[in-house]
C-alpha cells in the first residue's frame, strides 16, 4: 500500500515490518493487519486521485503538447516553466491571487472571531437561529453565491446602485472594485466556516482562567488579548491555514463574475485558460504544477514558520 511519491516524508515507514525488535504479539500483528485493511482503501484512493495526477501533470509539463495537434508533441524540458515565469501575466495573476487571499483571510478572521464569540456567548434562545443562519452561506454552492453577488452589483440587473444612488457606476469596470466584489462574495460564503473553527477553539479556553483574570480586574479587552487568544492559538492557526489555502485556489467566483476581465485573473483561472481553452496541455500542466507548489509553500510556511501542529490540533496524539 505504501508509496514514495507523497510529499510527507514518512512513506517508507508505513510498510508493516514483519520483524521489528521485540517480537510482536499475534494480537498486535493482527491489529496492524486489520488497521491497514480497514484504512487501506481510503488511503489508496486518496493517493490515486492526487499523487498520480500531479506526477502525470509534472510529466506532461515537460512537453510542448497541444491537444488538437497531437502529432507534433515534443519534449522540451523546462521551457514551459521558463515561458510562465518570464511572463508578466503569471506574476499579475499571482499578485491578484495573493491579494485576494490576504484580504479575505484577514477580514474573515476578524469577522469570524466576532461571530464565534456571539455563538459562544449567545443566550440559548438565539443560539440555534444564529447557527442555522451562518450555516446557510457555508452550505450554498459557490457558483450560486457568485451569481447572487454578480447580479446584485452588475450594471443591468443590480439593485446595489439603485440603493446606494450610484447611478451607472460599473463595479466590474475596474480591477480594484471588481476584486472587492469577488472578495466580498468569498468572505460572505466562507466566514461561517472560519467562525466554526474558532468556535471550537473558544470552547477549549478554560473558564477558570477567564474567571481568575476577571477577579484580577482585567478588562474585557485584556482578557481577550491575554487569555482567550493565546489559549486558542492552535485553532486560529488551523483556521488561517485552511482558509488561506482555500482562498489561494479561488476560481468559481472569478469564472462567474469577471472571467478574468479587467485583470482579475487568479492563478487557477490562468491554468484553466491554458488547458481547457487553449488546449495547451503542456503549458497548462506546468501552471498546475506551479499552483500546486505555491500551495505546498504556503502550507510549509504555516506549519514550520508558525509551528502549527495540525495533528495535535486535530485531536491526534
Amino acid at each position: 500500500m505504501s508509496t514514495t511519491t507523497m510529499p510527507p516524508t514518512k512513506a517508507p515507514k508505513t510498510e508493516p515490518k514483519s520483524a521489528p525488535k521485540g517480537a510482536l504479539s499475534d494480537r498486535a500483528r493482527s491489529e496492524r493487519r486489520l488497521g491497514w485493511m480497514l484504512a487501506g482503501p481510503a488511503f489508496a484512493i486518496m493517493l490515486l486521485v492526487t499523487a498520480y495526477p500531479i506526477v502525470q501533470a509534472f510529466y506532461e509539463s515537460l512537453f510542448d503538447y497541444r491537444l488538437t495537434d497531437p502529432d507534433n508533441r515534443s519534449f522540451t524540458w523546462f521551457s514551459n516553466y521558463a515561458v510562465i515565469l518570464t511572463d508578466s501575466i503569471w506574476w499579475q495573476a499571482l499578485g491578484v491571487t495573493v491579494g485576494i487571499t490576504v484580504v479575505t483571510v484577514a477580514v474573515e478572521l476578524v469577522l469570524g472571531f466576532a461571530l464565534a464569540m456571539v455563538m459562544h456567548k449567545a443566550i440559548t434562545s438565539v443560539r440555534p437561529v444564529v447557527r442555522t443562519a451562518i450555516l446557510i452561506p457555508y452550505a450554498i454552492i459557490t457558483v450560486v453565491s457568485a451569481f447572487a453577488w454578480w447580479y446584485g452589483f452588475n450594471l443591468t440587473s443590480g439593485f446595489v446602485n439603485t440603493w446606494l444612488g450610484l447611478g451607472d457606476y460599473d463595479w466590474f469596470g475596474d480591477t480594484l472594485p471588481a476584486l472587492a466584489i469577488i472578495c466580498l462574495s468569498e468572505i460572505w460564503k466562507t466566514t461561517p466556516f472560519i467562525s466554526l473553527l474558532l468556535l471550537a477553539g473558544l470552547a477549549q479556553v478554560p473558564e477558570v482562567l477567564q474567571e481568575a483574570a476577571k477577579v484580577d480586574g482585567a478588562t474585557w479587552l485584556q482578557r481577550l488579548w491575554k487569555v482567550t487568544i493565546p489559549n486558542m492559538k492552535a485553532a486560529i492557526m488551523v483556521a488561517l491555514l485552511f482558509r488561506a489555502l482555500d482562498a489561494f485556489r479561488i476560481f468559481d467566483n472569478i469564472f462567474i463574475m469577471t472571467r478574468g476581465n479587467n485583470n482579475t485573473e487568479s492563478v487557477s483561472f490562468l491554468a484553466y485558460r491554458q488547458t481547457i481553452s487553449r488546449l495547451e496541455i503542456g503549458l497548462g500542466s506546468a501552471l498546475s504544477v506551479l499552483v500546486f507548489l505555491c500551495v505546498v509553500l504556503i502550507a510549509v510556511v504555516f506549519i514550520k514558520g508558525f509551528k502549527v501542529d495540525l495533528a495535535s490540533a486535530r485531536g491526534e496524539k
Binding site: N154, L155, T156, G167, D168, Y169, D170, F172, G173, D174, T258, N261, N262
Partner: peptide, 15 residues
C-alpha cells in the same frame, strides 16, 4: 462610451 463599456456584451448593449 456609456456606462460599463468594458463589460458590455450584446445583451447589455441591447438593454
Amino acid at each position: 462610451a456609456g456606462a460599463g463599456l468594458s463589460n458590455r456584451d450584446e445583451d447589455a448593449s441591447a438593454t
